[in-house]
Computed example of a mutant assay.
Amino acid sequence: MTQPPPFDSRPDHRDGRPAKTKKPTWVIDKERARRASAAETVWLFGLHAVRDALANPARQRLRLVLTRNAADRLGEAVPASGMTPEIVDARTFDRAAPLAPDSVHQGAALEVKPLAWGPLSRIAAEGTGGARPMVVALDRVTDPHNVGAILRSAEVFGARAVVATARHAAPETGALAKTASGALERQPYLRVTNLAEALNELKAMGYVVLGLDGSGGQTLPEALAALGNRAVCLVLGAEGPGLREKTLDTCDQVVRIPYAGGFGSLNVSNAAAVALYAASLGG
């Protein structure tokens, strides 16, 4: 009796072509995510945000929509960028650039690709001088205005990166860029899949991870004074929920910002600015 072949070698197509092997679901999902990322674009708006994006050689720019007045105010930034703007009437601007109705665009909008900063390990290791290396990590901070303000403070005080999760965090948007007032073009904003893993990566590089929470037994100045000039990662959570339990467990220390009086709560962007200033003073 003839034994059957170890597998079915018959073609699945009438023309004799072999059937394609079905890809695993996780491979299909990964390819879809890659295609979606490649197709993603962001509309920046406002004179300051557009001017800084035009001056950023790392920014991939696709389409520039301006009113005549905005083009005049941007001056040499437009020809220096190599872009040819679409000049539109102010009354029809909203039809030319697909912005949210409440966007304060000042007659300037620029379609771009999100910035690619590279891996956390490289960005966190960069820097010059004897200043304390600093990184800010955000746990579920979804408000683009808060993240934009934090990016601005991070640039002012010399942080090497602001890290947030790929999900449940504010993405790169026009509102974020406008609040950042140009810092989005210069301050690395890294989105990671798993925040705890990113914190552990920083710890392996020598960073001390300080979680800011009202439950902290030690104040931030006390903790910083004991660290000298060691590198620190300041971790802040969303207003209300605060840091997740997993994030708290990953931190080396949980500290609090000291306050006077009976009210001890700060907006997350204000807390980030205070923490960055304190950390920038060194030990």
Rank of each mutant, 00 (worst) to 15 (best):
S153A: 07
K113I: 08
Y207L: 04
H13P: 09
L184N: 05
A279S: 05
A53K: 08
F263W: 11
G282D: 02
G130D: 07
M83C: 05
A97S: 05
S9I: 11
D139C: 04
R35F: 03
G118M: 09
G107E: 12
T67Q: 11
F157M: 07
A154N: 05
G16R: 15
P24S: 06
R68A: 13
E172P: 00
K113D: 01
V88P: 01
A198S: 15
P57L: 09
V65F: 02
P79A: 11
V50D: 04
R73M: 14
A96S: 15
E155P: 00
P5V: 10
A196L: 10
P133Y: 09
R91C: 02
L64F: 02
C251N: 06
D252I: 06
Y277P: 02
S37C: 07
D12K: 14
P4I: 14
V156S: 00
P221N: 10
G158Y: 08
I257Y: 04
G75E: 09
G129Q: 06
L47Y: 03
E245I: 08
A125P: 03
C233F: 03
L151C: 06
R73K: 14
V136Y: 02
A164H: 02
T21G: 10
E222D: 12
L44E: 04
R61C: 11
S37H: 11
S215V: 10
H145C: 04
A97Q: 08
I150H: 03
E155A: 07
Y277V: 01
L224N: 02
A125Y: 07
A49D: 01
W26S: 11
N146M: 07
P133A: 09
L44M: 06
I28V: 09
R63D: 02
K246P: 05
P241D: 07
P18S: 12
R132D: 00
Y207D: 05
L151S: 03
F93A: 02
G211W: 00
H105E: 10
P241N: 13
P144D: 06
A71E: 07
T247Q: 09
N56M: 10
R35V: 06
T179Y: 00
Y207W: 07
G82I: 10
A124D: 04
V254N: 02
A271W: 03
L54E: 07
H48I: 09
T92Q: 14
D8K: 15
F157I: 03
L66P: 05
L220W: 01
A204W: 12
L74W: 01
T179R: 02
R186Q: 06
S280P: 07
A166L: 13
T41A: 00
A226Y: 00
A58D: 15
A53D: 04
T21K: 15
L110P: 03
V141S: 03
A116N: 14
G261I: 01
H48S: 12
T193P: 10
T179I: 01
G182P: 01
S215N: 12
